[in-house]
Structure formats: C-alpha cells, structure tokens
Design a binder for these strands. Structure first.
Length: 419
RNA sequence: GGAGAGGUGGCCGAGUGGUUGAAGGCGCAUGCUUGGAAAGCGUGUAAAGAGGAAACUCUUUCAUGGGUUCGAAUCCCAUUCUCUCCGCCA
C-alpha cells in the first residue's frame, strides 16, 4: 500500500509511475478525497484542542460549552470517517509502482529476456510430456485425484513421490546451508489480516481458498504461497536495524483456485489447485531491496544450474508484474514436450509496499522508524521442477534418469523406471 | 464443548476518574570512565496523523468498536484475540 504522505509530495509523478501499469485509476477522486480528509482532520483537531483546554481548566461555567463541542466533533468525525474509508478502499486496491528500469508493457509478450543458460536437450525420439511419462510409469494418477477430489489435483506415487520429496529437500538444504536462509515450517492457514498484509486481499479474494473454522471467528485462508505467512512474520514489528536482513525459507503446499484460468493447462500438473513450493523471503532495509533481489534470483538460478536444467531469466514488464511487486524476475525452464520455456520461479522485490500494509518497520542508525523492504521468490516451484526433470531427463524407453545432485536424496538411485 | 484469567510503549511490567504518553526494569542510543572492552555513573529513547521550508507545534492512540462523564488506560456494554484448567483428540 502506498503511503499517502509520500504520494502527496509529488502527486503527478506518482500518477505517471502507476499508470505505467496500464490500469485505470481515478486520480482526481483520490486527490479530492485526500484534501477533504485533511480539512476534516484540521477542523476536528482545533475543536479537540478547545475541549481539552476546558477540561484542564476545570472551570464549571465552561462545561456546557464543552458538551456542545463534543457534538460538533462527533459530527465532523462521522464525515471524516466516511472519507477516510473511501480513501483506504482506493489505496488498498492500488498496485505497487514499478521500479524505474522495469520495461513498460501490456502482458507476458512484453517481458524481456535478460539471460539464458543450459543446453536444450536433443532427443533422437519424440519427447513425451510429463503426464504421459508419469502415467506410463504409473506414478502420476490424475484420474484417481479426480475421483477422490476433483480436477486440477494429482496423486504422485512411488518413486516420483520420492523424487518430489528429494527435490524439496535438496532445495531447502541448498538455501539453508549455502545461502543463509533460516528454515521455517509455518502454518498453512493465514488470517484475513495476514492475507491483506502481502496484498492477496482485498483485491484477489477470488483466487483464495477460504476455510471455515468455528463460527464467529476470524476468516482463515489456505496460503496460496508461503510468501504470505513468511513475510508476515514481521507484521506489526519494529525491528532493530542490526537484525536485518532476515531470510526465511520454507517448503509448503500452496493452494490456489486458479479462477479465470479455465481451459488453460488443463492437462498434466502444470497448473494445480495444490502444489509444493520452496519459497524464499527476505526482510531488508528499504535501500537494499534491489541488491537483495539480484541475490535472491541468483539463489534460484543456482538450483536450476545444479539440476542442470536449461532456463532463461526474464524481467517482467509493468503490465505482467504482480500486485505488490516493484520489480520481478521470472525464471523459465525448458519443457521439451511444449518446445518452450515455462515459468518455474518468480522473484520479486516489493519495496515497502507490503511493509506499509503490515506495519513492519525498523529503527535506522538515526533512531528513525522506517518501513522495511520485503522480497519473495520461489526457489523453486517443486511440482514444476518435477515436470522439468521428467521431460528433460527422459530416456527413449520411458525411464527417467535422476539428476546427480538428487541421487543422495534418493538412496543413490540413478534412474526411475517402471519396475 | 464446560469453567476461569487476561490483552498497557521495541520487550517485561506498574497503574481503578483529572498535567498518565503513561512509574520501574530490560533493551537501544549517547556522554564520562578505559590502552581497549566489560562493569559503573549520567543523559536520552513510542507510534500514527495534521500544520510548517525548518526548528517545532497540535491532535490521537493503553486489543477493537460503542456508551457514561466537563474529563476514561481506569466505570458500563458488545466484539475479538491470547492463556490456564477440565473434556475430546492427532
């Protein structure tokens, strides 16, 4: 969420920045509401001062007047509240402003490739899709999931289940032991307020699974990504500068409704309602966001390098970035069956956007209170990594050779085949 | 599900109607001291909002929302969250 105080300083340039996202926002309304809001506040405060003085004086002859003042204060407060509410509604639905070097564009077609790595595998046969491979091995079962649950779920069985677990553990170990992240095993449910903090609510409620607990309690949601719960670790906190940066990593299931993606990626496990993801989150001083973004992205590419999967690194254009992000790199892995790159990781700096929503701050060296910067990135999406390994490491006989770095996590198994 | 207790500053913790934004402690910052550190002593240390170029000034805030009162952290009501005991249970 944007700090109104900052916006006000240079309203026009803010408007220009946010319009790069190619969305429609009524700025004159925002400006107008802000002005009204401040006028009411000033009226209210001068009356409050008057009232306070009377109360302090303990002069009985003025008590009647004080009572009258109370009634006018209530009046103005009422009006101010309405204006404030509307202001907040507009603000909480307004996305982050893009960082200055982010390319302006409409959708994923305007994203720009900044790096490419790894050899695209050559096959002397027609490479199969991950779901063909998995079903032939009898280790991916979509029909069974349909029976027990519904569409967009899958049973991963046998050696592929082990592979999935190995991928997750390998990624966690790498980030914990080599990259300095602290391992967390968090709750998978988040409160409404927590969801607001990272920007999933109020605008994207349709994408979230809501869970019914006891009647009359707070609303709870299944996390769509561990980013939500990890970032909110610092909600309502004022941290000591010395404790920064904080770096957390977790491997969790993620739950998404995927509303509005009907008919997209219906085959296979590219787009599921539930999937595992290893997520990195950093909490940093606000000036260090962009450095940390590079660092975090490198932590993610490191995994792809170690798995020897071919990928490219994209910088997302203004129109394709997530709501809370100021700058995002997507990593896309090569999928032979589709003959193209598909997203496997997304690393974003959210500047102070989420921190303002969460009220997450730190004291800097001048003892001033500042908002922290927050970053999140997948390192990597486990389900899609499984897909990428299946497809890139497939053999002519339908077996899958196992990437070297994963073998220690799989009893030194070298390949997965049907028997 | 039954019974009870409680939400106060970065943290712990006093405080039951009138300079209480809030004692005390911890932490943090800073000065003295030291070869350097520790200890010790002194000083300072909330956030949000509004006004102002700034120094600074004003307002609000003791879970949240209402109420009583000239005046509420303190009294009343509602909501919410946390904890303890019992029951049930992985």
């Amino acid at each position: 969420m944007h700090n109104l105080k900052e916006i006000r300083k240079n309203f026009d340039s803010f408007e220009k920045e946010i319009k790069k996202r190619l969305i429609d926002i009524d700025f004159s309304k925002l400006k107008d509401l802000d002005k009204k809001n401040r006028e009411f506040i000033q009226q209210k405060e001068s009356l409050e001062k008057e009232k306070k003085d009377i109360s302090k004086s303990k002069d009985k002859t003025l008590f009647i007047k004080s009572k009258q003042i109370t009634s006018s204060i209530n009046d103005i407060t009422e009006k101010q509240k309405l204006v404030k509410l509307e202001l907040e509604k507009i603000l909480s639905n307004m996305p982050n402003t893009p960082y200055k070097d982010v390319p302006v564009g409409k959708d994923e077609n305007d994203n720009i490739e900044v790096d490419k790595s790894g050899e695209i595998p050559k096959f002397d046969f027609k490479p199969k899709s991950h779901y063909e491979l998995g079903e032939n091995l009898k280790m991916l079962d979509f029909d069974l999931a349909t029976k027990t649950t519904g569409s967009r779920f899958v049973f991963v069985k046998n050696k592929l289940a082990l592979l999935e677990r190995a991928i997750s553990n390998f990624m966690l170990d790498t980030h914990i032991l080599k990259n300095g992240y602290e391992e967390i095993s968090p709750p998978l449910l988040a409160s409404e307020n927590t969801m607001f903090g990272t920007g999933q609510l109020p605008k994207f409620e349709n994408d979230q699974f809501e869970v019914k607990l006891d009647e009359g309690t707070d609303r709870k949601f299944l996390i769509p990504t561990a980013e939500v719960i990890l970032t909110n670790i610092v909600k309502d906190k004022i941290l000591n500068q010395k404790s920064l940066p904080l770096r957390f990593v977790a491997s969790t299931p993620c739950f998404r409704k995927e509303a509005g993606s009907y008919g997209k990626d219906t085959k296979g496990m590219i787009r599921q309602h539930q999937f595992y993801k290893v997520e990195m989150v950093s909490i940093v001083e606000q000036t260090k966001c962009l450095d940390e973004l590079e660092r975090m992205t490198n932590c993610a590419t490191q995994i792809l390098d170690l798995l020897e999967l071919p990928y490219r690194k994209m910088i997302l254009c203004t129109g394709d970035m997530g709501f809370s992000a100021e700058k995002t790199y997507d990593l896309e892995v090569w999928l032979p069956s589709e003959n193209k790159y598909r997203e496997i990781s997304s690393c974003s700096s959210c500047s102070t956007f989420q921190a303002v929503r969460m009220k997450a701050r730190y004291k800097d060296s001048n003892m001033e209170t500042k908002y922290v910067g927050t970053l999140n990135g997948s390192g990597l999406a486990v389900g899609r990594t499984l897909i990428a390994i299946l497809e890139n490491y497939q053999q002519k006989d339908g077996s899958i050779s196992i990437p070297k770095v994963l073998r220690p996590y799989m009893n030194n198994m070298e390949k997965i085949s049907i028997n």
